[in-house]
Design a protein around this nucleic acid. Structure first.
Length: 462
RNA sequence: GUCCCGUUCGUCUAGAGGCCUAGGACACCGGGUUUUCAUCCCGGCAACAGGGGUUCGACUCCCCUACGGGAUGCCA
């Protein structure tokens, strides 16, 4: 079996897109499970829209999320001579010709074709003119006029295109620069790529690229066209219908492993499992099992998967990764005496790090706001809080069990419901009705701070 | 218009002619965990785009229609 080489070939015209991450992931996994190589190629031939900033963003993000290439990435913008040489070779072999049709002429031609119900495509009018190169000519590939081309796709099977549906595409622009199709084909060959895994929007490009390969005498490639990632409007995922930048998800506190997991499950599944880590994917993934239809990116699935991945983290690792989110809130995790217990108690309070960090605020900072609705609902009688304050103040051994006993005894002696006793305390401590078990919560706050906050609420109420 | 790809619960999917009274997961709804939020557990709701064939039998095979997407660029 020959060594598999895959590649991810982004255009640096924006930050790393979540759909791009998925394409890169499938390329990476496919290469790794075959002991092959995963490569990156920057397709920056569109000098108008490509920037170095975007390129850096893409490369940095791919690496940090774990999709590191096995060789240094190459830039198409630096490889002009190679493409020119290839173009020359095609020209010499008689599979290309110079064409001097102007943009206007082509436009007119297409208009006429459309008007007569024909498919708009270049009709090859310059093909046999034997034109010389000039500053007005483009180099076109002489596509075979008859026969068909069969694309063998790992996911879709054989896709057949009639050659007469394909027109003579441009290899070199009139300014002498190579086009996407040429660069793409040449680089896949130069990088010794064996398998092209890309979005299904490239399906119809494939027969064209195969013709270029043929003209150059390159070997056949293996293809797999992935279904697209869609937004909730069933349209291709874009800035308009969702957050598309990988960074945005990381900043919200989603784990890299959860993002990758979610992306992998978009279009692929294995058994009745939903939680996969990279090594699972490398073991279980099969490109042939990939779905053919586009998949909608559902944030609630990411939320859930993130909670699963979060739960699998050790406390140490959890704390470490939570750190930056606390820092953003100017919270130092060690400022709490029992930070380990606190974090352990709070780690399921939200699905994301940013949400968890936010819910930790009352444990580190003063409360400057109370949930008014909760006050209205649970505090009709201040005397409950006042009496509890006295009882708690009398407790010398401040531990969870003792605290719970005080609360329980008070509740049964007074014949009150649990919420009637507990919620006012919760509101005192956290400003809301949310917290872990109350005995634990009071313990975590410590005696002094607990009493102080009860006093604060009492004075706030009067 | 033409060519190509696609179409199972709201969403991600299982299903390769009988195992399907179509399974799982998320979401949602209800219940439980000595009655907070969350976690966790249990239960419920909910789909084969439509029409023709082929077959003893079709979600599965074929054809047509509808709908969605892509291509039809001197963009990638």
């Amino acid at each position: 079996m020959k060594a598999i080489v895959t590649r991810f070939a982004p255009s640096p015209t924006g930050t790393l897109h979540i759909g791009g991450v998925r394409t890169a992931l499938f390329n990476y996994v496919y290469a790794k499970q075959n002991n092959g190589k995963f490569l990156i190629r920057i397709e920056d031939t569109d000098t108008e829209r490509s920037t170095k900033e975007y390129e850096k963003n893409i490369l940095d993000n791919l690496t940090s999320i774990g999709l590191e290439p096995d060789e240094d990435p190459i830039n198409q913008s630096e490889r002009n001579e190679i493409y020119l040489k290839a173009a020359e070779k095609i020209l010499q072999s008689g599979n290309a010709y110079w064409c001097d049709c102007s943009q206007e002429e082509l436009e007119e031609m297409r208009k006429a074709q459309t008007a007569t119900g024909k498919k708009p495509m270049y009709d090859g009018r310059s093909r046999n003119l034997g034109l010389e190169r000039s500053d007005k000519t483009v180099l076109r590939l002489a596509t075979p006029e008859n026969g068909e081309i069969i694309v063998k796709d790992l996911i879709r099977g054989e896709i057949i295109f009639n050659n007469n549906e394909l027109d003579d595409l441009i290899l070199l622009r009139s300014d002498g620069s190579p086009t996407y199709h040429l660069c793409n084909v040449v680089d896949d060959y130069e990088q010794k790529v064996t398998t092209v895994i890309r979005g299904e929007d490239h399906i119809s490009n494939t027969p064209r690229q195969i013709h270029i390969q043929n003209a150059l005498g390159y070997p056949e490639l293996e293809y797999a066209h992935l279904p697209l990632v869609l937004g909730t409007d069933k349209k291709r995922l874009s800035k308009r219908n969702a957050a598309t930048s990988l960074e945005e998800y990381r900043e919200k506190g989603y784990l890299d492993s959860a993002i990758l997991n979610t992306l992998a499950r978009l279009g692929w599944s294995q058994g009745e499992n939903d939680v996969f880590y990279m090594n699972d994917l490398i073991k279980e993934f099969n490109i042939k099992d990939v779905q053919k239809a586009g998949a909608i990116f559902d944030i609630t699935k990411l939320d859930w998967l993130n909670s699963q991945h979060l739960a699998n983290l050790s406390l140490e690792s959890f704390k470490e990764q939570l750190q930056p989110f606390l820092q953003a809130l100017e919270i130092n995790i060690e400022d709490h005496e029992k930070s380990d217990q606190l974090i352990e108690a709070m780690r399921t309070s939200d699905n994301t790090f940013s949400g968890i960090a936010k819910s930790l605020i009352p444990y580190y900072k003063d409360i400057n706001e109370y949930d008014e609705k909760a006050i209205e609902k649970f505090i009709s009688d201040k005397s409950i809080l006042e009496e509890l304050k006295v009882l708690l103040n009398g407790l010398d051994d401040w531990n969870q069990d003792n605290i719970d006993n005080i609360l329980k005894n008070y509740q049964s002696e007074k014949g009150l419901s649990v919420p009637a006793v507990n919620q006012p305390i919760r509101i005192s401590l956290t400003g809301s009705t949310k917290s872990p078990g109350l005995g634990l919560t009071l313990f975590l706050f410590g005696k002094n701070k607990s009493l102080e906050r009860i006093s604060n609420l009492l004075s706030y109420l009067s």
